[in-house]
Nucleic acid binder design. Sequence first.
DNA 1: ATGTTC
Length: 382
Amino acid sequence: MSTADTTPTPTPSAPVRIIASPQSWIEGEAVRQLEAVARLPGMRLAVGLPDLHPGKGAPVGAAFTSEGILYPYLVGSDIGCGMGLWDVGMLARKAKAERWASKLDVEGAWNGDVEGFLAEEGVKSTGFEASLGTVGGGNHFAELQRVEAVHDAEAFASLGLAADRLLLLVHSGSRGLGEAILRAHVDRHAAGGLAADSAEASAYLTRHDHAVAWARANRALVARRMLDGIGAPGRRVLDVCHNSVTARRDARGTRWLHRKGAAPADEGPVVIPGSRGALSYLVAPLGDGTGSAFSLAHGAGRKWTRTAARERIKERFTAESLTRTSFKSHVVCENKDLLFEEAPPAYKPIDRVVTDLVEAGLVRVVATLAPVLTYKTRSHAE
DNA sequence: ATGTTC
């Protein structure tokens, strides 16, 4: 017997995999966003990492692979955003955190030779150079850290690191550049994708790749300004991008790997930071990456929205008290709203996120890093 | 996230 089926055919979904233990609380909205992305044309795999949380349309803490079509809106506006780690080249016990907290200033355009700096980094200028070497807003920061514990001495030493030296972790992106690139795309295509073999995809990818390189140079200049401020040399240990789309070619053809708040698992060790009042984890990826879209968590993940964090944290803490943490570290954040929005209770516990990655066989911990001074922003009232 | 935002 045949029956007329009047129900619409469900859009076939790509597999969805969420790498998180039941102890990692993940908002339902983030899961719904992940599932919605998995139903987009061409999608082949959607992976949520343990720091998965809702974003604007698409979730953050996720990686997606597609075939034949790529989606600029999944990368978002901060193309190239990522984490760079520097060996400060100074003993941690020589740190003058209180003095540095009153003095460090990386606001506004750098007064050095920006064009020369970009040339050294091998990056073309963009018209956004007044922002080059600035941290930006939101969850971006530059943080001096000490080594709390070394768990894998060999891997730690192979990065040229020493347990008694300060480190500098820089989280920033492409500032207004990436936003301009996404806006130009969204003006024409909204959330729509681009056929991978189209001229528009090539044009987007060229601009995207430039923003990724510029963002990396931005982190390098933020680091240089911080290092100049404390009078230390500094050496870049690693630098990885967690917002990007890249081509991966294998026997099946080309896959487009979108990372939205997801660190790469195929570029060596990475740092997964907690909140400014928590440890950060230096981890080494394990496994072949195929089940996790070659990606890792990129941080603790937000527990409270910015609005909720402002309200709840204002009730419990004074702004002054938030300039120090349970690690006795210093916080430079002269924007009060931002000080509340980014306070440690607004974030999930980073140890749970990293434990989930360890238990999933995706990383081993090389070292834990404790905050000494977190630089967010210095206000420049006239 | 945002040379933001009138």
